[in-house]
Each structure stands twice: as C-alpha cells, then as structure tokens.
Design a binder for these strands. Sequence first.
RNA 1: GCCCGGGUAGCUCAGGGGCGAGAGCAGCUGUCUUGUAAACAGCAGGUCGUGGGUUCGAAUCCCACCUCGGGCUCCA
Length: 648
Amino acid sequence: MPAEICVTLPDGTTKSLPSGSTGADLAASIGKRLARDAVVVEVDGEQRDLTRDLPEDAAVRIITAASDEGREVLRHSTAHVLAQAVLSLWPGARFAIGPAIDDGFYYDFELPDGQTFSEDDLERIEDKMREIVGADQPFVRAECSVDEGLEVFAEQPYKREIIERVESSEVAGDGSVSLYRNTEGFVDLCRGPHVPSTGRLGHFKLMKVAGAYWRGDEKGPMLQRIYGTAWESAKALEEHLERLRQAEARDHRKLGVELDLFSFPDEVGSGLAVFHPKGGLVRRLMEDYSRTRHEQAGYEFVYSPHITKSALFEQSGHLEWFADGMYPPMELDGGTDYYLKPMNCPFHILIYRNRLRSYRDLPLRMFEFGTVYRYEKSGVVHGLTRARGFAQDDAHIFCTHEQAEGEITRALDFVLGLLRDYGLTDFELELSTRPPEKAVGTEEEWDTATEILRRAAVAKGLDPVLDEGGGAFYGPKVSVQVRDAIGRSWQMSTIQLDFQLPQRFGLEYVGADNERHRPVMIHRALFGSVERFFAVLLEHYAGAFPAWLAPVQVRVLPVRADHHVYADRLVDRLLAEGYRADTVVADEPLGARIRRAKMEKLPYVLVVGDDDVAAGTVGVNPRGGEVERGVHVDDFVDRLAADVLAHV
RNA sequence: GCCCGGGUAGCUCAGGGGCGAGAGCAGCUGUCUUGUAAACAGCAGGUCGUGGGUUCGAAUCCCACCUCGGGCUCCA
C-alpha cells in the first residue's frame, strides 16, 4: 500500500494525501470553510460519503450543501431522520421509501393497526427529529449480502421487497446491499450517500401528510406519506417558505374569489365553472385576441355541437381508448346513445368529409373554441386548471404529407408568437413519443411522425426534451411548457401529428395526379383549455392583468362631490375611445376609494380635484408606480393607448 | 377512484353536547365633503354542506352522501 495517494481536483490540480485519507480529510486539507460546508464527495463521477477512504488517482470534487447536489443529499438524509423519528414514536411502524424530491423530501410509512398521521403529529415528529439532529448521530455505512439484508429487515416487508429487487440493480446490482446505521439502533436500507452525521441537518420543516400508494400502484396498499422541506441554511428555508406564501397569494382560486372573476357553484357540479362579469370580460378579451390572430394566420372558424351519437366516437376510437374519461351516455330516441364530447376532432373531420376535397383546398385549417366535457376522477379536479368542462382553442389542420412538416413549423411559430403576446416568454419544448400500452398504428408510422415533429422543433432553435411514451393514443406530440413569473412550469400548447384518424374516417383528397390520397391531420391547441390558460395568466400576473386585459383599466375618483361632473365627462371620453373606465362618487374619503381600486389591482387610478377641473388635467396613480399630479388628459390617454398596444 | 384534513353570515375565521350562534371585512341607512392604500354611527344578514342516527337536548358525537383542500394516480 503506498504511503500517499494522489487525487485530481476539478480545476485540474492534483493533491497528495496520506493513504487512507477520506473525503472529509481532503476537504479539511483544502480549507476550513470547505470542511464545514462539505456534505459528500464525488469520486470519478460517483457520489460517496465523506467518511469513506479515497482511492488512488481519482478525480474528486467536494460537494457542498449550497448546491443542487448538496441539497439533494441533505434532503435525503433528513428523510432518514424523519423515518428514525417516526419509528421511535410509533413502535412497529413499517417504512417504505424516502427520497429527496424538488425542494424537499418525503417518506412513506405504514403505521401499526391502520393508524394514520394527523397534522398535529407533525409537530411531535419534528420535535423528535430535532432531538436526533441535536444528538449528532453519525451515519455509518455498511455493506452486506442480500440474505443478510433480508435478515436485518425481517420485520420490514417493504424494505424486503426492495432488497428482493436488487437483481434489477435497484440498490447495488452486485448482490450486496448497503445499509446506514446510526446510534439508537436505527438502520435503513439505502444506497447513500449521506451527510456524515445528523448534526449537519436542521433547517427543515415537515409540510403535510398525504396518502400514497406503494410503488404508485392503485391496487397496492395505501401508505401514509409525510412531506418535508430541507435547506442548507435557516435563510434558504425561510426564502423557500416565503416563495410558497407568494404562490399561495397568487393562487387563481383565491384571486378568482377576491377579484370576483368566477366560481364553482355546488349546484352545478364539481369541476364546472361559471364566469362572473369581470372574469367573463377578461376571458372574452383573451378569446377575441386569439380569434383575430387565427384569422390572420389563415384559420377558418367552425362550430360543432356538445353532444353526438356514440357511433362517431366509436369510429374515432375515443370510446375504445378514452371511455373512462367520458361522461356516461344518455339514451335517447329509443335506444341511441348520445355522448357529451370530450374532444372536437371528429366533428372537424366530418366537416372535411362533407364533400370531396382537392389538393387545392389544402392545407385546410379549422378552428373552434370548442367546449368539451371530461369525466375527471373526483380527486383530481382542481380549480380552473383541471376542470370537467372546458373550452379548447382547438384547431385541426388537414394537409398533404409533404405539407405536414411546414405546417407544424408554422403552427409552432404561431404558438410561440401568440404566447409572447399574452406575456409568457419563457418556453421549453417537450416531445412525447409512442405510449407502448395504448397506441394505434404501426411503429413505423409513429417513428415517421415523431421525426417530423422533432425536426420542426429543432428548426425553431429549441431542443425538445424527450417524454418517452407520453403521446396520445393516436399520435406523438410536441408540447410547449411555459415558465411563469415565479418560475413555475405549465404545460400549455400541444401540436399533435395524426395519421390515424384520417385513416379511421377514410379521409381523402384528389391530388394533382387525379388520384385519391390520404391527408394528414395536425391537432393543435395553444391555450390547451381556455379556462386553464385563464388561470395561468391570472397567476402569472398575480391578478394584476396588463391594461389590454384588465376588466377595468381606469378608475376616476373625484375628490369632492362638486368634481363629479368633471369625472363623469372624463369617463365618457375614455369609454367613447374604447377604454374601460368607471368612477366612484365621493361619499367616502379619497384614501378609502384608492385602497379599493388598489385591491382590485386596476392599472390606473385618476384623482381629479379643483386644480384638475381648472386646468383640464388629472392626477395619475398608476399600479406599481409613482403618483403624478397635473397630467393633461390627452397625455394620459396617449399613455394608456401605448400600454394597451404594447400589452403591458 | 383511494388516503388525510376541512365545510359556521357574501369573504376570512372563532366557538367543539346545554344561555336567543360570534368577530372583522363586505352590504344597507344615516351623518361626514374628503388631493393619493381603511371617516363615524346604526341596521340587517346564518335550518352551522345535505340526509339519517345516538341523546332529555346536536353546529358540537356517529353513519352515509355532496363538496372543497393536500397528496397518490391521471391529464388540457
């Protein structure tokens, strides 16, 4: 054994250390601060515990807590402490898995005698966890054989099940499993790595309890899951909690009530919204703009009914593949089943098929705000983002094979431009491929279609992320993920290529060669669902809609009753010029009326008093800006016009 | 659909077997005439989600259903 080992650091320099040195020794030899912040060490690309010996001649990198990788380790280790706490508070509890996730971690348990956690238990568990952290117990790694592992976890069926899958390399892959023990006799099956000891943890909070199926299988046992979050410092934890509070404040369901935009009356049914006048106005503005842009882009507008005979959805394949997601049929006309439509495509196909089409008709682009109904499982309904009835901004492009790629590129261009106009500018593309379990058509057709989509995406200069098996049953799709103002990602638009439905419906066109050919169909939606898009915009803007979408753009507040006439004239002028303005009479102090307007998040409040009446001016109090006195009315109108035009 | 937790006035929430069920905000009516984020007073407002049950007595305990929230799963 050599007396020294030599390792290479990320900057390319090498360092000699006594043989038997650990990652912790390395960190300490580099600096005191690094030694304190280090959580694990990466050795030749593999993360390891700081306490393990370093091999000779390895490329090493110290990972600190304040990095994505470091936080992941931290969270994973905190999950272990959670398990230790629960097992000590509920003797006989079984524990399953406890990984790190975005912003935190969870651990799944099965409590004895079918007990369940309540929110109050979280505090007790947290206290116990702090105790364990305070004791600074080391995480000690041990390796053992599968049989020994099964022995150690004799009372833990979930752990045994995991070990039994070792062959499929879930834990180690070489017939051995690794364990982590700490004092108090707690031992967990774990691949690691972990922080050196529990004392390194502490900036965590348990967030909620939930049910979760073992291995995500609906037929498997329901376990009790505890979610928590963990960070490298008290400050980072507090910032995260603040972000959550911010997200909560801009929740569209909350803003929908506060700003009187929409509601979900119990009398109507779960997942079925009604839009109130203000929400209806915003929605109409959104839709009108979309219509105008579609018209300019060569789409033609069609309409189709909400219900149809079952045969149509039999032919489309929806009843075969999508029946679970459909409302049950109504039996009418002595035995005919009618269904509420879950999709618009079959109707557009019938419009296409209504007469013989020539290649000269193609591409044919049909657009409809089509209201569809989907019977979502009761547990998944969620405000406007997951409703049971919603309008799709749905279009179907019928074209030749040769035109398909160009049409997709064009559609993608259109989508991104339109989303930008609504104020969403941060995109990511995702390419969803063939779902192995439920797909119609041959693999070859799918490959061709997928490749066309990929090329179109790349042509836009956006490298799509692959979503293996995420396509619909009839075709692959490119979807646009949008990042909103606080960094959350929403799946928005989809563009789907479909060779199947034209075939099922026997669609044809007569080519230049006077022969009959089969067209290709492209399904595309930009908002996906108007309701959902409404919700995303509402959250993106935190309720403060830009002037072009704001239900009320300007509120005029007379200082005293004798300014009413001037205020009314001002409102009349704004209305006449096509703006949305109103006024509130002076039977309440000005401050109170301004406060109301601010809580309604209006773009502009205009205050008019003696000076303004005399000079033909207004006091401008813009949202998020400084008050300006004595602005000439014409100048204000110009400013408003510029805002509306610029969509700000 | 499954697990956990909720549903009390328009909104936000107290009250948890026994006085006619409460507060703040919003609403209405007066008074106040106001220059940039809450004037004052009074009034009105609830079959305590729905239906059953236990009890001398239920907003309160039990059951079922509806519905909302957080998850699982699924998806636009």
